[in-house]
Nucleic acid binder design. Structure first.
Length: 203
DNA sequence: GCGCCGATTGGCT
DNA sequence: GCCAATCGGCGCC
């Protein structure tokens, strides 16, 4: 995919897309576009890695057993709501709420293929190589200018939206254990585009 | 009230 | 491979 992929005509994914089980949404998000119109310039990328967090029943979810606190209210919002939280007190991680309501399920964006606004991303990311601009959940938020300001906003009317991109055929989708967590890490809820060079670094 | 830990990253050994 | 940065939530005293 080349520059110019982001046209004014792109329309955000409908709420129906997100009103499904998180693992289904996570798999179907592969290949979708994330388009950011934040200050500093338009940036966009193609999703190549996601992780599903199932909500109340998932020990790794921030909504496990209906856990609720000041920071995670957005998790219980309508489908398609952005849930942005601070990781290790340093980085922002961006999720999209799925089923919505009391379940608290969501999909974490873990890696993108940079498509547009690479110089803008590099300005935000310290002039790093293109290969490492968006290959991690904290990296892609920095590259796209995503921070707490996005938390709780509906994706379809937010400065950062998700639109249909170039689909990844089911044969090229791969489910793996989740990364970087201690609880229920072995649940196969991480989804990647097989062989993509833009995936997050494996530990 | 206090200390530990995490859905991470980048720099240094 | 190891570890600091940095901070809110949570367990525990």
């Amino acid at each position: 995919m080349t520059a110019g992929a982001v046209r004014p005509s792109v329309r955000p994914l409908g709420l129906r897309f997100f009103r499904r089980p998180a693992e289904v949404v996570a798999a179907d998000l592969l290949g979708a576009l994330v388009i950011s119109r934040r200050r500093g310039g338009i940036t966009a990328g193609r999703i190549v890695e996601t992780e599903a967090y199932l909500g109340v029943t998932d020990p790794a979810s921030h909504a496990y057993r209906h856990r609720r606190h000041a920071g995670n209210g957005a998790l219980y919002g309508p489908p398609g709501t952005w849930y942005v939280y601070r990781s290790y007190g340093v980085h922002w991680c961006a999720n999209l709420v799925c089923a919505g309501g009391p379940l608290g399920s969501a999909v974490l964006l873990r890696a993108l293929e940079p498509l547009e606004g690479v110089p803008v991303m590099q300005r935000r990311r310290g002039r790093r190589a293109q290969a490492v601009l968006c290959n991690g959940p904290g990296k892609l938020t920095e590259a796209l200018g995503i921070d707490q300001g996005l938390n709780g906003l509906p994706m379809h009317s937010a400065p950062v939206m998700v639109a249909r991109g170039t689909a990844v055929s089911p044969a090229r989708r791969e489910a793996t254990p989740r990364i970087g967590i201690t609880k229920a890490a072995d649940w196969p809820l991480r989804f990647v585009e097989a062989d993509s060079p833009w995936l997050s670094r494996r530990r």
